[in-house]
Write a protein that binds this DNA or RNA. Sequence first.
RNA 1: GCCCGGGUGGCGGAAUUGGUAGACGCGCUGGAUUCAAAAUCCAGUUCUGGCAACAGAGUGCGGGUUCGAUUCCCGCCCCGGGUACCA
Length: 883
Amino acid sequence: MDYKFWEIEPRWQAYWEENKTFKTPNDFSKPKYYILDMFPYPSGAGLHVGHPEGYTATDILSRYKRMKGFNVLHPMGWDAFGLPAEQYAIQTGTHPAVTTFKNCDNFKRQIKTLGLSYDWDREINTTDPKYVKWTQWIFTKLYNTWFDYEQGKGRPISELPIPEEIQAEGEAAVKEYIGKKRLAYYDNAQVWWCDNCKTVCANEEVLTDGAHEKCGHHVIRKNLKQWLLRIPHYAQRLLEGLDDLDWPEGVKDMQKNWIGKSTGAEVDFQVEGLDQQLRVYTTRPDTLFGATYMVVSPEHPMLNELVVADKQEEVQQYSKAASLKSDLDRTELAKDKTGVFTGRYAINPVTGLPIPIWVADYVLMGYGTGAIMAVPAHDTRDFEFAEKFEIPITCILDPKDADAEVREQVLAGKACWTEDGAYINSSSEKTGLDINGLNKKDGIAKVISWLEDRGIGHATTNFKLRDWLFSRQRYWGEPFPVIHWEDGEISLVEDDLPVTLPDLQKFEPGEGGESPLANATDWLNVVDENGRKGRRETNTMPQWAGSCWYFLRYIDPNNDEQIFDPKLENYWMPVDLYIGGAEHAVLHLLYSRFWHKVLFDLGVVSTDEPFKRLYNQGMILAFAYETQTGAKVTSDLVEEKDGKYFHTQTGEELRQIVAKMSKSLKNVINPDDVVEKYGADSLRLYEMFMGPLDDTKPWAENGVKGVFGFLTRAHRFFANTDHITEGEEDLEVLKLLQQTIIKVGDDIENLKFNTGISALMVFNNLAIKKGKVTKATAETFAKILSPYAPHLAEELWRLYGHKESLAYEPWPVADESLLVEDTHEYPVSFNGKMRFKLELALDLPAKEVEQAVLSHELAQKWLDGKTPKKIIYVPKKIINVVL
RNA sequence: GCCCGGGUGGCGGAAUUGGUAGACGCGCUGGAUUCAAAAUCCAGUUCUGGCAACAGAGUGCGGGUUCGAUUCCCGCCCCGGGUACCA
């Protein structure tokens, strides 16, 4: 009897589809479980083997949870806006919608051949106008929300209190004031522009060396009017929210670093000869005594005033040069610090002494106050700068616990010390402050309170997180529901959503950095009832927009009246498990959390955080081959002999390496081919058997053969009714079956699929060895196999006479009483080295255990006539004789 | 530089979190079947020595704690990911 997966699998896939086996009812009587995959961008290349890894994992858990009695929401959809379809349109004239439709269709076909239990009635597509409508609706909410720092939450803009002095200035001032509070705003921003492609590109499309990933040309900065979102207002909430999430620590750390909270103080320095203060931000106010100079960023608003007459030209030149450098170039040159003295001095508030003010591009305008106090003895950057420009370096923190040589260097100002120590040179009779002898923590506290008492500084917090650039000069994205009127007013389209994309013939962006939408004149120009002329926003939203909230739409995907029914949202949210690639650790997951928190504050959603548990699947790599000199050889030119690899043409022996799948190495694995050759169940099983879900691991065809062999043997045994008997089950089989039920279930809950499969294999091996099992055993095996290999399991279930799918059969409960043992086979060690095994009754008193061990015939050899010093006896674990 | 992961047979990986290191699978070796091969089945397979029983070594390296360490602690080396003048 052959394992005809090519007949079995399509048959069951058709059955599930016809019977809507996996349609998810909104049945509130059952406990819910929401299992989400990161939905794919449907590229023209189709599925690669990385996709089914996460999808199979969630599918196994979904099937398992259904059998455990949960109402499982397990949907799939398409993140279908994006650049490739638009680039393709520019090249071929094919409308992105056409390409997108085709690609989604192909993805869906491929996914369906894997036997994944999605509820396809909930399928969504971010490009669907019915979906875009609600993406735009959320944008209008962002625009009409401000963040109330007192309450720590977002509130409707209508509730924003307007200070009297603003009101007094008139309507324009009020509008401006409100505009500065909105979570979405329109302003000048710098973007990356590729002059070769005539298009802007997203940050993530710019490689670290400043090249555009598509064409390799260097991108430049361009200043364009842009939409931005004030995500930093939620920085503290986004940071705190991480604490309660069951997420990989690495992802939480990355988000924490990205948010970048730091605490310190702002300090005002009196500028000599001007009636002005220069405000700096520092995390180390305790090192004020060591501040021997100051630096302002080249973009600092006070710079012009600060520069003395005969330094004007030099400084101007420097600032101009700095502004031409991109951030990237600035970091590139990080090793070599540059800067110019402004000729101006400020008074160090704790010493009362003047210190020079420099301008240097290692200080960024976008962080803190754009100005710093420089403490070269205790900050590596300041140290480098001071050494280069021969500025005094005053050590004020004695590294008393450091080794003598280092300490001497630091004290002499010849090395930089950033760790803790005891203050020296940190008192001033003139100002009355003295922190000598204190440690870092106490020093910071004392200086801050001293500054606060005098009104020249205060404790404060800073975040690295910046405003989110939320627009792209693109066609294939969500249009903004926004009209710019000729009088400068901006208004939202709120009543007539969605604003749909106009049909275009040409998709090239405009010369001046405008979106292709600027060419759609009919669509573009609008006139209001008073004859006022306006222009629609021509930017579109970035791809993140649709993916920020898609998990909410699955809950009620066809609702045209509301974004979703709140009753349903309340039942289904939050997402219980979210699986996807680690590449989204920061951006997608942070953006999503941000939107979700805004929606939560506005009462739209019922949970503060969207994703309770997150798990990242690892990347799947492939073997590749290279010659002894390191030249890569494409996989079609490699043959294997006796575990070694040779070039088919030159005969040269090759080295096997692990690399990313790539067209150039010809080592890309197409899931379609695997399904055709071994079947979907084998593909699923192998993807899970390769190793831990979150590991990076190489694809090996022999591994697929291995799991295929397992399914073939399982089929040969369990699908042959000659092997299925009536009556009592063999005790060994029965015991192992109970253990397997427990192991497989636990491993699914813990996402340890590789060892779960191993347990199924072990059981299969025993059953085959025994030659027969009872029908009850065979049915149980089919059930616990079913999350992994659902097609084969359904086939067996049907064979055993059942008419219905086993998808909702209760998960077997192990009879643990069968596993209770009254003896245990102890490994007996001498000095920690296992020497022999000894079966003993569990209730044997310790004394008798020792007796039994020492009187064992093999014990004499290891005792070697000595008397044991001690005998360690750990019941049910081990016996160790210490000599 | 900084922050996270991770180093276990020829290979992918197990090991109940301090208790028999190498489950399961691949590969390899031998055997059965076959005219032969593929497929399948059976046996073996960490390394070293030995026909064998068995003995010794062994989880990146060097120390330490412990009756006992892949697991805990200290100091290194290597690999992968993230981040980068954030004051």
